[in-house]
């Protein structure tokens, strides 16, 4: 009996998940599968500022520290083999292939994702979304679409900034503190980073993360139960679900990109 109940609740969870996926898909489809309007452009630019520019300080500082920590730990290991010259590629490749896209996406989920959920949830619970509907304006187009595109455009850029700042942080620790030769740091780094393999993959990864994180955040806000508990729950869900999604997808993408 107990077994059947557990099976039943597993089934319910699966059904809920699929239903949620369908609803989220419909929401996204309704928001972006339209002819873009000129009127939508200022809304997009505004969201680009809110979602992207306002996350810059966080990304900058985190990138710097991650790069410095990475370089310090890497130096301590490499120096044991006498190969501390390869600190440059170690830092750069770790950042480009993994830490840049992943950590940026996690920070983005916490900073911008939760803010998007809370903002849209609040709009819904104060009937602003209904009010748009009643003014014959599609809230998916007016509210969801510009935020979605802003997220998709800004996260890859933020990931690149994060990576660049991180490499600079590695340089600070490796060259200026530990005394690796600056010329060999940069030249070995340059020789081992490949455009297609590393940089393009970095951008692809963060594009995928951008779509997923922004999508989850918007959907959680759009489907919020319109009361204060509902909003706080939805914000938490955004951060938890998008972090898990980023980590799981990262493994899949890494397996496809670097598994051979």
């Amino acid at each position: 009996m107990n077994m059947t109940n557990q099976l039943a609740s597993l089934g319910r969870l699966t059904i809920d998940f699929v239903v949620g996926l369908g609803r989220a898909g419909l929401m996204l489809w309704g928001a972006i599968a339209r002819k873009p309007r000129i009127k939508g452009f200022p809304l997009f630019v505004k969201q680009l500022y809110v979602v992207g520019v306002q996350s810059m300080v966080l990304i900058f500082v985190s990138g710097l520290f991650i790069g410095m920590v990475l370089a310090l730990q890497g130096y301590n290991i490499l120096v044991g083999f006498g190969t501390e010259e390869s600190l440059g590629p170690m830092v750069a490749l770790s950042l480009l292939r993994e830490l840049g896209p992943v950590v940026t996406a996690l920070l983005f989920a916490g900073r911008a994702g939760s803010a998007l959920t809370a903002e849209i949830g609040l709009m819904k619970s104060t009937e602003q979304l209904s009010s748009l509907e009643m003014m014959a304006i599609d809230p998916l187009r007016q509210i969801i679409a510009p935020r979605f595109w802003a997220g998709v455009v800004s996260l890859p850029l933020l990931a690149l900034i994060f990576t660049a700042v991180g490499i600079y942080g590695g340089h600070v620790v490796g060259v200026e503190w530990k005394g690796i030769d600056s010329g060999s740091f940069w030249s070995i780094l340059q020789a081992s980073v490949e455009w297609r393999e590393d940089i393009v993959n970095c951008i692809i990864k963060s594009l995928v993360f951008a779509v997923v994180v922004t999508w989850i955040a918007l959907y959680r806000g759009y489907r919020v139960i319109p009361n204060p508990e509902g909003i706080s729950k939805a914000t938490t869900q955004t951060v938890v679900q998008s972090s898990l999604a980023v980590l799981a997808l990262d493994f899949l993408l890494t397996a496809v990109m670097f598994g051979r």
Binding site: L122, T126, E127, Q128, M135, A136
Partner: peptide, 28 residues
């Protein structure tokens, strides 16, 4: 098109919180 001919005053007012009163009225 029907909704352009009707309008609703919500209990909470439902003014758009990110714009001033003028822009709220001008919105539609």
């Amino acid at each position: 098109n029907m909704r352009k001919r009707m309008s609703m005053l919500f209990q909470s007012g439902a003014l758009f919180t990110d714009m001033n009163v003028f822009d709220n009225v001008a919105f539609a």
